[in-house]
Amino acid sequence: MENIAEPNKAIEADIDREIANRTKDIPGWGIDADIKNNPTYPMKHYNGADHERFNYEKPPQQPIDVEILHSIERPGVTRVFGTSTPPSGLSGMLRRYAFRYSESTYAHWVPLVVADRINVIEGIVDDLKHGHIPNIFAEKGWQAEWKYNRQGFIKNVAVTVAVTAVVATLLFRKKKSK
């Protein structure tokens, strides 16, 4: 019975990796090749290294001492990686889920976007847990807005307060009428 679980392995086993062997019987092979007829020229200094595929000599491996999520489009982690902010909490769970899917899918990117938003709330909770009350005014750089666009800043605050007041009043009235 045909192995349908891993069809690529069966096919790949039959492929001759030697270009010379594969092309020796093809009349005119490579006759019109032109290194400059390449959209990456001159950015790419073509030397055929692509054809080594994944068998190139690699730098030593950075010790993996934090949790690193890696794309399933590669066989493992890269030889170096960043150690900033390993996945944690609910956002971390979502990120781990996302990395079960390839970069080619929404199942990868959408959970990451959602995780980023959840992570913002986790950040505030974490600040409070460490006794730090985040100064949102300062973090948003509104001191600069006050300095360079005072009129606009006052207008925006006034509009926000007015809209909030109207919404609150409407909600309060609705509740009262019930």
Binding site: I68, H70, G76, T78, F81, E103
Partner: peptide, 12 residues
């Protein structure tokens, strides 16, 4: 290809 484990489309 050896600086970004999280994505293959961009280097580190």
């Amino acid at each position: 290809h050896e600086s970004n484990p999280e994505a293959t489309a961009v280097g580190g």
